[in-house]
């Protein structure tokens, strides 16, 4: 019902949700999304106050949660109906995720964190030089590669998280309030770098935030309340 502005059918659909219902465990609340489509290459700003199902939607898109009914298709392939193991593999290969915080394994070096992402995606190519290039593009000093992730500042960690999320060149990037721990300057730099990298890789970006001022960095904007409804079952 709330579809994107780009209706050109020749552009493949990156994300398609149809009659998706998800019931929260141990409660009667159901999240429903009748219909939603995101075209490949779109950069969608998904906004809404907390408690409106943002995180649940991201969990559904990442395949960590499975909807009770309905269908989620990613890259024109059925996704939510896949068995758990296949969904995990699909996520590793095609979806990158950046959270608010704690994106990295603190006791591993930055390079090892990035290698880990390649490992789970069966990405056999040498990622080291690519990682170095991305770290450079994200304006981080090259020596951070060998520092343990836990020793970096939050801003640096968030930038490493982008590199990690994009190392396998995923078609879809899910980002959840990535700038909430950053100050304004760092936030602007972060948003610019994020969108620039997505542009070069033609990645479909779903950017979730309650901060409306970030809307300008993205190509389209969707309100969560328009997209989905939360209903208490009888």
């Amino acid at each position: 019902m709330n579809s994107q502005q780009n209706r050109n059918s020749s552009v493949p659909v990156a994300i398609r949700l149809k009659d998706v219902h998800h019931r929260y465990p141990k409660s009667q609340v159901t999240l429903s999304i009748p219909h939603w489509e995101v075209q490949t290459g779109d950069k969608v700003f998904l906004h809404g106050p907390s408690g409106t199902g943002k995180t649940t939607l991201l969990n559904l898109l990442a395949g960590v949660l499975q909807p009770e009914s309905g269908e989620i298709a990613l890259l024109d392939q059925p996704f939510s109906s896949l068995p758990t193991r296949k969904r995990d593999k699909f996520r590793a290969k095609h979806i990158g995720v950046v959270f608010q915080q704690f994106n990295l394994v603190p006791h591993l070096s930055v390079l090892k964190n990035i290698r880990l992402a390649a490992y789970f995606a069966d990405n056999k190519a040498s990622v080291d030089s690519k990682a170095a290039a991305m770290i450079n593009a994200l304006r981080l000093p090259p020596e951070v590669l060998n520092q343990s992730a836990g020793s970096l500042s939050v801003g640096q960690q968030q930038r490493v998280a982008i590199a990690r999320a994009l190392i396998n060149e995923p078609e879809i990037l899910l980002v959840d309030e990535p700038t909430s721990a950053l100050d304004t300057d760092a936030r602007d730099a972060f948003m610019n770098m994020l969108t620039a990298l997505c542009e070069t890789q033609n990645t479909t970006l779903i950017f979730v935030s309650h901060d409306k001022s970030l809307e300008k960095y993205l190509s389209s904007s969707v309100s969560l309340s328009a997209l989905c409804t939360l209903r208490e079952a009888e």
């Binding site: 990442a62 960590v64 758990t84 193991r85 995990d88 593999k89 996520r91 590793a92 290969k93 995720v97 959270f99 704690f102 994106n103 990295l104 394994v105 880990l116 992402a117 789970f120 995606a121």
Partner: peptide, 9 residues
């Protein structure tokens, strides 16, 4: 959670 999101089952 990090491992899970990287695709670890």
């Amino acid at each position: 959670a990090v491992l899970r999101i990287l695709g670890a089952g």
